[in-house]
Simulated scan of single mutants.
Amino acid sequence: MNPDQVAITSELHTLRDYIRWSVSAFHQHQVWFGHGHVTAWDEASQLVLNAVHLPWDTDPVVLDARLTQTEKERVLDYVHQRVELRRPLPYITGEAWFMGLPFHVDERVLIPRSPIAQLIETGFEPWLRPGSVNRILDLCTGSGCIGIACAYAFEEAEVDLADISTDALEVAQRNIERHQLGDRVSARQGDLFENLQGERYDLIVSNPPYVDADDLASMPAEYQHEPGLALGSGDDGLDITRRILREAADHMTDEGLLVVEVGNSEVHLMQAYPELPLIWVELDAGGNGVFTITAAELRAHAALL
Results as ranks from 00 to 15, higher is better:
Glu155Tyr: 03
Glu155Lys: 06
Glu155Gln: 15
Ala157Thr: 07
Glu158Lys: 03
Glu158Val: 02
Val159Met: 09
Asp160Cys: 00
Asp160Lys: 01
Asp160Gln: 09
Leu161Ile: 07
Leu161His: 06
Ala162Pro: 00
Asp163Thr: 08
Asp163Arg: 05
Ile164Cys: 12
Ile164Trp: 07
Ser165Val: 00
Ser165Leu: 02
Ser165Phe: 12
Thr166Ala: 15
Thr166Ser: 15
Ala168Asp: 06
Ala168Cys: 08
Ala172Phe: 04
Gln173Thr: 13
Asn175Phe: 06
Asn175Arg: 06
Asn175Ser: 00
Ile176Lys: 01
Glu177Gly: 13
Arg178Val: 00
Arg178Ser: 11
Gln180Met: 04
Gly182His: 06
Asp183Leu: 03
Asp183Glu: 14
Asp183Lys: 08
Arg184Ile: 02
Arg184Pro: 08
Val185Phe: 04
Ser186Ile: 00
Ser186Tyr: 12
Ala187Leu: 03
Gln189His: 15
Gln189Asp: 13
Gly190Phe: 04
Gly190Ala: 06
Asp191Pro: 10
Asp191Lys: 11
Phe193Leu: 00
Glu194Arg: 14
Glu194Gly: 02
Asn195Glu: 03
Asn195Lys: 15
Asn195Met: 12
Arg200Gln: 15
Asp202Arg: 05
Leu203Met: 00
Leu203Asp: 04
Ile204Val: 15
Ile204Arg: 13
Ile204Thr: 02
Ser206Phe: 03
Pro209Cys: 07
Pro209Tyr: 04
Tyr210Thr: 03
Tyr210Gly: 08
Val211Glu: 13
Asp212Ile: 01
Asp215Val: 14
Ala217Ile: 00
Ser218Val: 03
Ser218Phe: 04
Met219Leu: 15
Pro220His: 10
Pro220Met: 08
Pro220Val: 01
Ala221Lys: 15
Ala221His: 12
Ala221Val: 13
Glu222Gly: 01
Glu222Phe: 01
Tyr223Glu: 03
Gln224Arg: 14
Gln224Asn: 10
His225Gln: 05
Glu226Arg: 06
Pro227Gln: 06
Pro227Ala: 09
Gly228Arg: 08
Gly228Gln: 12
Gly228Pro: 04
Ala230Cys: 09
Leu231Trp: 09
Gly232Trp: 02
Ser233Asp: 05
Gly234Cys: 08
Asp235Ala: 15
Asp235Lys: 14
Gly237Arg: 02
Leu238Ile: 05
Asp239Met: 11
Ile240Met: 07
Thr241Phe: 07
Arg242Trp: 04
Arg242Val: 04
Ile244Met: 06
Ile244Gln: 06
Leu245Ile: 04
Arg246Cys: 00
Arg246His: 14
Glu247Ile: 01
Ala248Ser: 15
Ala248Ile: 02
Asp250Asn: 13
Asp250Phe: 09
Asp250Val: 01
Asp250Ser: 14
Met252Arg: 05
Met252Ala: 12
Thr253Ile: 09
Asp254Asn: 11
Asp254Tyr: 10
Gly256Asn: 09
Leu257Thr: 12
Leu257Trp: 01
Leu258Val: 12
Leu258Gly: 03
Val259Cys: 15
Val260His: 13
Val262Asn: 05
Val262Ser: 11
